[in-house]
Structures are given as C-alpha cells and as structure tokens.
C-alpha cells in the first residue's frame, strides 16, 4: 500500500518536471496538428466559416496532376541532395580526421560554415552566382569561350537535355530535375556537406585503432581497411544522416521560395511544401493545403518506418 503511494508521489514529481515542455509542445505542436487534421476535411479560406467536405480534399489532391508533379520534383531533390551530401561529407571527414595535421581546426570551421549560414542568405548568394547577366557562373563560362547558360529559367530536365543529343524524348518521370532545380540541389548539397562531415568525424573518432592495427598485421591494404572496417563501423552515422537528410529534404522550402518565388520555370521547382504553401497562403485553400500536409506527413512517416525496418538491420553497432 505504502509503496503504491510512494510510486504515485514519484510519478507526480516526474509529471511536474516534464509539464513545462509538455505544455509548450501541446500548445505549439499537438493542438495545431489536431486542428489542421480537422480542417483538412473542410474547405476554408481563412475568412468565411469552414464547410465540411469529407474526404474531398484528399481525393482532389491524389487526382491532381500538380500534386504529383510536386511529389516528383521533391523526389528529384531528395535523390539529388542525399547521395552527394553523404559521399562528400565522408570524403571531407576522412581528409580532416588527422588531428596532427596543421590547421585541421580551421578547415573544420570552413566546411561547417555553410551549415550555420542562414538558408535565405545562402539562397540569395546562389541567385547572384547563377544570374543570367551578371552572375559569376556565366562570367566564367564566357571566359572559357562557351555559351552562357540560363540557370534559373531552363525547365528542361537534365537527363532529357543529354538525350536531346540523340533525339530521344524521355517520359516525364525520367526527364530528371530541371537545370534550375539542379542549382537548388547544389545549394542543398553545399549546406548539408558540413553537417555530414562533422557527424562522420565524430563517428571516425570513435573507431578504435586496434581494428586498423590488427588489419595491418594481416596485411590489409588501405582500401580494404576502409571498405571492411571504416565503412561498416560508420554505418550508425550514415543511418542517422540518412534519416535526418531525407526528412529535411522532403520539407525543403526556404531556398525555393527565395530563388524561384514564382515556382521556377514551368513550376519545375515547385516541391511539395512550396505547393502546399501556395495553396494555403496565396490561394487560401486552407483545407486542401492541410490535406496535402497530412499526405506528406504520411509519406515521410512510411519512409522512416521503412528505413528502420529494413535498413537498420544492416547497421553495425559496435
């Protein structure tokens, strides 16, 4: 009896400790979430009273060409940003791992700089670089004698551009991200690499030297050491980055809004969150936008569960 009361008193203490956080999360996360979920079954323009429409918003979204195009462009972004961020992050981490090298600290700061740069400022900087008339990119192209490229207004997919040389027209899904989207992907990679580098550096430092010594005694080459020791023991870091980057990439918005405020050439940079934002805050189709948001949430959730189920098995925890 006494132990039960003590337990109760203990749990009261615990609840009191978490209550400030719980309150903030309830007000700013759970309440809006529930409210948005209810609104996603209504049509609402923020001014008139909401009208219940059942599942219409969801069916309209799933039937809309623009919605699926936005999904496709989001996939392009994720598939463009993810592998390069991981590979370059690992590459720079391997270069910077040596603590005895002079100036490692400075290099680490330099590579981490893009991460702490405001995405808005970075996007504006990229806009200047790739501007048609005064951009550095085109200036350099002209210096080496080639034609300037309209980076920010070319809607053709880059794979289609390549296949244009052979006069082959690809189906829409295979055309690849537009050139403008590639510039935005480049910005995404530039901002992610520093973060990946730091995470990989931490991962590398936790790998014990004994493995490498043992491998050296067995006569393993540098490549073999990397492939059989470094990479597998880094897999927790890779898994963490994979999940973080996929979630963040699906939600990309800032750079798109700054670099292509009208949705890019032929809307080819209109990723799903941009589409959602337009529906909500330009067209005031609030209910519809919230339905799209929940579809996106469902999607990210499925992806993440899939990753935990199937990829986590391959992760080596030391």
């Amino acid at each position: 009896m006494i132990s039960k009361r003590k337990k109760f008193r203990d749990s009261i203490k615990g609840y009191m400790f978490i209550s400030p956080t719980a309150l903030v999360i309830t007000v700013f996360v759970f309440f809006p979430l529930i409210y948005a979920f209810i609104m996603s079954f209504h049509t609402w323009n923020m001014s008139s009273a909401p009208i219940y429409v059942g599942l219409r918003n969801y069916t309209t979204a799933l039937k809309s060409v623009d919605f699926w195009n936005s999904m496709l462009y989001t996939f392009y972004y994720v598939l463009g940003v993810l592998p390069f961020s991981l590979v370059f992050g690992l590459f720079f981490a391997l270069l910077l791992r040596d603590n005895t090298m002079r100036g490692t600290g400075i290099y680490r700061v330099i590579y981490f700089m893009p991460v702490v740069t405001s995405p808005i400022a970075a996007a504006m900087g990229f806009n200047w670089i790739f501007e048609n008339q005064m951009g550095i990119a085109n200036h350099l192209l002209e210096k080496i004698g080639s034609q300037p490229v309209s980076w920010l207004s070319t809607p053709t997919g880059i794979l289609q551009m390549f296949f244009n040389n052979f006069n082959i027209a690809l189906p829409k899904v295979l055309q690849g991200p537009s050139l403008t989207m590639c510039v935005i992907i480049l910005l995404g990679i530039w901002q992610n690499v520093g973060y990946a580098t730091v995470v990989y550096l931490a991962g590398l430092q936790s790998i014990s030297d004994t493995y490498y010594e043992a491998a050296s005694l067995d006569g393993a080459t540098k490549w073999k050491k990397f492939w059989h020791i470094t990479l597998p023991l880094l897999s927790p870091s890779t898994f963490f980055l994979l999940i973080m980057f996929i979630i963040a990439s699906f939600q990309v918005f800032g750079p798109i809004q700054i670099m292509t405020p009208a949705g890019g050439p032929l809307n080819t940079t209109s990723v799903i969150v941009f589409y959602l934002y337009r529906q909500a805050f330009s067209y005031y189709n609030m209910g519809y936008a919230m339905a799209v948001a929940f579809l996106l949430m469902g999607f990210i959730l499925t992806m993440t569960i899939f990753q935990f189920r199937f990829l986590e098995r391959k992760v080596n925890y030391e």
């Binding site: 501007e131 048609n132 008339q133 005064m134 309209s150 920010l152 207004s153 009208a262």
Partner: peptide
C-alpha cells in the same frame, strides 16, 4: 526567351 522577369529588368537597367 530565356530570362526570368528579374533578370530581364536587370538587363534593361544595364542597357542590354
């Protein structure tokens, strides 16, 4: 044919 409106205004201001 290949300029955004912003780039076009920029080019106009530069006398191009």
């Amino acid at each position: 044919a290949n300029m955004t409106l912003q780039e076009g205004i920029q080019a106009f201001m530069m006398g191009k």
